[in-house]
Nucleic acid binder design. Structure first.
Length: 301
DNA sequence: AAACCGATCAACCGCGACAAT
DNA sequence: CATTGTCGCGGTTGATCGGTT
């Protein structure tokens, strides 16, 4: 590329638009259409670059723009689409009539992203941030129980903890240790549950205090097998775009634990109040907890 | 009242895609 | 095929505002 940006010309105004400039731009586009953005400012009598005019029009002055807070359904749609399309804000915007890509992007970064993080959901992968879960507590009790296993067997009673739990924990640890530089871009690990994989029996050298006190859960867990069951509604998505996006997102976990059919929730189209946001957060947390319980139930029982 | 801080969002910038030459 | 020009996208910035200290 390397060509000069269109705004290089000196003397062109930058910064916030005045009502007069807005009026000029709207008036010109209503009469002539925008046509060539590069020539538009000159023809419209604006001291702006075409790029600035296009942005002002598409993000602010367009008559079909819906302003105001995002509705419950809109936010849910954004989360669902983001889990499929990633940061394809323009693609997401085409499915939200009246909303611009810029508006959606801002809303994502200022509201949704933070809420997902608070809920322990990775806003990039839409999967639970298992690195935040405190498995150390589980492991401590497991370790304690494992030491009792021999005693239990000697006594002829069943151990209190499913030994598979211990195996899985060991597997998780070795996963973390083997790939400390793991990133979603260079790998697509999927957790292998005990019935699917030969697990390494923990030995005395593998379990130590460092493990129990350090960051416990590997970031390489991928629970997509379970989260796919949440069932996205892909209806209405352009299949070509999906295919294109899947190429870029193939290493990501394309699911959203806090998605659901809008009808399952409060279907009022009311805008969010802080209370409503709390309600939504709570709702999503419940789903997340539910799913996590399912996962661990399935894995350990 | 003033300073500080975080949230919000309009606007900018750089770059890639694609069409035209 | 290479170069040039335009458009649009996504990341980032910075002005503004409201709340808190």
């Amino acid at each position: 590329m390397g060509r000069t940006p269109c705004c290089d010309s000196t003397g062109l105004k930058k910064g916030p638009w005045t009502p007069e400039e807005d009026h000029k731009l709207v008036d010109y586009i209503h009469k002539n259409g925008h046509g060539n953005w590069r020539n538009l400012p000159k023809n419209a009598g604006l001291q702006r670059c075409g790029k600035s005019c296009r942005l002002r029009w598409t993000n602010y002055l367009r008559p079909d723009i819906k302003r105001g807070r995002f509705s419950f359904e809109e936010e849910e749609t954004i989360i669902q689409l983001h889990s499929v399309l990633g940061n394809k804000w323009s693609a997401i915007a085409t499915r939200l009539p009246g909303r611009t890509d810029n508006e959606i992007k801002n809303y994502w970064n200022t509201h949704i992203r933070k809420r997902l993080l608070r809920m322990g959901i990775d806003p990039v992968t839409h999967s639970p941030r298992l690195d935040l879960l405190d498995l150390s507590a589980i492991l401590r009790s497991t370790l304690y129980s494992s030491s009792q296993m021999k005693v239990s067997s000697l006594l002829g009673v069943q151990p209190l903890v499913n030994p598979e739990l211990l195996k899985l924990a060991a597997s998780l640890m070795s996963c973390e240790r083997k790939s400390p530089s793991f990133s979603p871009q260079n790998s697509s690990p999927t957790i292998q549950f005990p019935h699917e994989q030969q697990l390494v029996e923990p030995t005395g050298t593998e379990f130590n205090d460092e493990w129990l006190s350090g960051p416990i859960l590997p970031s390489c867990l991928n629970l997509d097998a379970n989260f796919e069951l949440l069932g996205y509604d892909y209806h209405g998505l352009d299949q070509q775009e999906l295919a294109r996006t899947e190429g870029k997102n193939k290493n990501k976990n394309l699911c959203s634990p806090c998605s659901s059919s809008p009808t399952q929730m409060n279907s009022n189209s009311s805008n969010f109040t802080s209370a409503a946001e709390d309600e939504k957060e709570s709702y999503c947390s419940q789903i997340l907890n539910f799913e996590l319980h399912d996962i661990f139930d399935e894995a350990f029982m």
